[in-house]
């Protein structure tokens, strides 16, 4: 009477093991995805992935070969204005096969869009999917056009931080 009971248990164990292996194989990708967001969050908190215009102009003037500027705006905007030596990879096409080897090469890429929000999101997206060595230009093309025009002429110091408050905080609550 005890024997068939144990056989049944054995069968359940085998089935569970098979099921477990099967489901863990299926879900391992999703699990990784989840942890990656948390790792990315820690990375964002502990280090910066921004390059301010000042630093970018230094890079340009010293002609550092290890850096490359990547303009993720559309070709029309790129033709209209772009940073010297920048390569145009429109964000719509950033995941296309033709750019994989470019994104994977050793050079440090400095992404920029009109402001910094899109470049920042694209950087996160690419980091999430395994690319490294990516930075974002603070202020983007708009700030550059307004203030940095050529690498020798600065209207401002080039210290731009998107998260800096641009006005006096007390004005927000001003009454009378």
């Amino acid at each position: 009477m005890k024997r068939p009971y144990i056989k049944l248990l054995g069968l359940i164990i085998v089935l569970l093991t098979v099921g477990l292996v099967f489901t863990s194989l299926q879900t391992s990708k999703k699990y990784k995805f989840d942890t990656k967001a948390i790792e990315l969050h820690k990375e964002l908190v502990s280090s910066t992935h921004f390059i301010d215009p000042q630093k970018a102009s230094e890079i340009l003037s010293k002609q550092h070969d290890e850096y490359i500027f990547v303009d993720i705006r559309n070709p029309r905007e790129f033709d209209n204005f772009h940073i010297e030596g920048a390569v145009n990879v429109p964000m719509q096409q950033i995941l296309d096969d033709q750019f994989i080897s470019f994104l994977k090469n050793d050079k440090t890429k400095v992404l920029y869009s009109n402001e910094s929000i899109e470049a920042d999101q694209i950087r996160l997206l690419l980091t999430q999917f395994g690319y490294s060595n990516l930075f974002v230009l603070q202020g983007g093309a708009n700030y550059w056009k307004e203030n940095m025009i050529s690498k020798d002429v600065f209207k401002s110091k080039g210290e731009y931080d998107d998260e800096k408050l641009k006005f006096d905080i007390s004005k927000l609550t001003a009454t009378e």
Partner: peptide, 10 residues
């Protein structure tokens, strides 16, 4: 919008 867009992405 840096912090907010990063939070959104994550």
């Amino acid at each position: 919008t840096t912090l907010s867009s990063e939070a959104w992405m994550l």
